[in-house]
Each structure stands twice: as structure tokens, then as C-alpha cells.
Computed example of a mutant assay.
Amino acid sequence: MGIVGKIVGGTIGFALGGPLGAIAGAVFGHAFDSSEESGLQGRSGNLSGIEQTQLAFFVSTFSMLAKLAQADGQVRNEEIDTIEAFAVRDLKLSPAEREVALNIFRAALSSPARFEDFALQFYQRFQNNHQMIEMMMDILVRVSVADGVVNRAEEALLLHAVRIFQMGEQRYRQIKSRYTATENQAYEVLGCRPEDSDEAIKKRYRTLAQSYHPDKIAGKGLPDEFIDLAHEKFREIQKAYETVKQERGLR
């Protein structure tokens, strides 16, 4: 069962604090009220450390996506459709989980907190876990590109996240190139350049394959709901390396 199912099913007593905590309290407090009305019995207790980390990632995702959608001052129906498609197609959330995700999205739209407030709290929690930070950046870019238009306001917020996450604009461009056709896309996925040596590319691949194995990043707090995305990223790394190997005749 994913973190959302555990919470809605009755596990209470989380303490994220800050703007993310305010969003979680508003959304899951309502979920608990609904559960009680429907006859589900709650149980008291606290989330474990890993569960709080998973909750922080889940709430951060849909809170930052909300502020991205709101970047130009209005939220278009197409943007809401993109968020729903991401929840269903990419995360494969159940109807109940999808509703929770959309409730987080709506609560963040109404929140006085800014995009950078959510991004900073996320970074403070995950600053020693570069895989989780890159997963978040990948998600923000993926959803921003999905509706076919990344306007200047959205781009400005994405670059602001890059600075908060201390990622570097080159890595951001490499992530963005995964979702836009480029001549050297396989190299970009690996974070390499065509002029890099064979050994450098092999070393980079080994590092990525080890770092982004789904089992490994799940153990660092990636919510179960995002595991399919981790598998997709892992397959993408493998496919890119196979492409480069064929081009170079590597064994």
C-alpha cells in the first residue's frame, strides 16, 4: 500500500511543518473526517521516518506543480488535464489516490505560499539525496513540457528550482532534453557529451545505473506511487547507453 493509502486508511500523526505541513494538514485532515463519516476506523500513531519522507515527496510534487500551473496568473483547463493525466498514466494512482493528489494541487493553488517556499522546504529535506532531487526536477520538467507549452513564467520558476536545488543549469538542460528531441539525446540522458571518452561514458553509465536503481531510491524515501516512474527512468538510462554503445561500437 502506498503512503496515501496508509494515511487515508487511518494512520495519523504526521508533522511536516512549514508550508508543506499546512497543505498536508488541510488535505489529510479532510480525508480523516471523510473516513470517519464513511465508517472507517482511524487509529492514532505517528508516521515512521521513511513514511514522513514519502509524504513530504508526494505533497511537494503536487504543491510545486500547482504553483507552476499558476505561474502566469491563471490555471488553464489544459494544465489541470495534464496533472490528471500525470496522476493516472504516469503514477497509475487509484481513483481515491488521484483525488488526494488533486486535493493537494487545489490546496496549493489557494495557499499564500510561493513556489520557492515549497521548493526550499523540499530541498532542505532532501539536500543530501541528489537522486530524489533529480527525480523531482525530472517530474517538474516532464509535466511542464507535457501540455506542449513551457511559457516564460514557468521557465523562470523551473530555473529558480534549479538554483534552490543547487543543480546547475547544464544538468537542467540535460533533463529537459529528455522530453524534447535533440541530436544528442542519448548523451544528454546520460549527462555526457559526444566528445567524452568511451571510459568516461562507461563510468557515467555505471554510476547512474547504480544510483537510480528503483529499489535503491525507494529505500531513500521515494513514495510507492512513484516507483513506476523510477523504473521508467532506469530503463531510459539503459536504452540511452545501448544507443551510445551501438554508435561507438562499444562492448
Rank of each mutant, 00 (worst) to 15 (best):
T11W: 07
G39T: 10
E116D: 15
E199C: 06
L20D: 03
L109S: 03
K220D: 07
Q238H: 11
Q127C: 06
V75R: 14
Y205C: 03
S35T: 08
P95D: 02
L140D: 00
L159A: 10
Y179L: 00
L250T: 06
L65M: 13
A26E: 12
R206F: 11
A119H: 01
I217Q: 01
K67V: 04
V88N: 03
K67E: 12
R76D: 13
E232M: 10
D196L: 10
L20W: 02
A96I: 14
E99K: 15
A85K: 14
A87E: 13
L120E: 10
T180Q: 11
V143K: 01
D196M: 14
K203Y: 09
V59G: 07
H130G: 06
F32H: 14
I139R: 02
A96P: 05
A22E: 03
A113L: 06
A101V: 14
K220I: 04
E99L: 15
F126H: 00
D33M: 13
A153P: 04
M167H: 09
G10L: 04
S35R: 06
D224P: 04
G5H: 08
D90R: 07
I139K: 02
V143G: 00
L65F: 11
E225L: 12
N129V: 14
A153C: 06
E37K: 13
S197E: 13
Q121P: 02
I217M: 02
Y212I: 01
T207Q: 14
V189G: 00
M136A: 03
R106L: 10
V27N: 02
A107L: 13
V143S: 00
I201M: 02
K216S: 07
L65E: 14
L91I: 06
T207K: 13
S144P: 01
M64D: 12
F234G: 02
A200S: 11
G10Y: 04
V150G: 00
E36L: 12
N129G: 05
D147E: 15
T182P: 06
M1P: 09
D228S: 11
F14Q: 01
I237D: 00
C192D: 09
M136I: 02
E183L: 10
A15L: 13
E242F: 05
H160E: 13
Q170I: 08
F57H: 10
A113Y: 08
N46T: 15
I139N: 03
R173N: 15
G29D: 14
D228G: 04
D90F: 01
T53D: 15
M137V: 10
A161N: 04
Q170V: 07
E232S: 12
R106G: 09
I80Q: 10
Q54W: 01
K239Q: 12
I139G: 01
E97C: 04
L40C: 04
G191D: 13
R152P: 05
S94W: 03
T207N: 12
F58E: 07
A181H: 11
L120W: 07
V150R: 00
L16T: 07
T207W: 10
K220H: 04
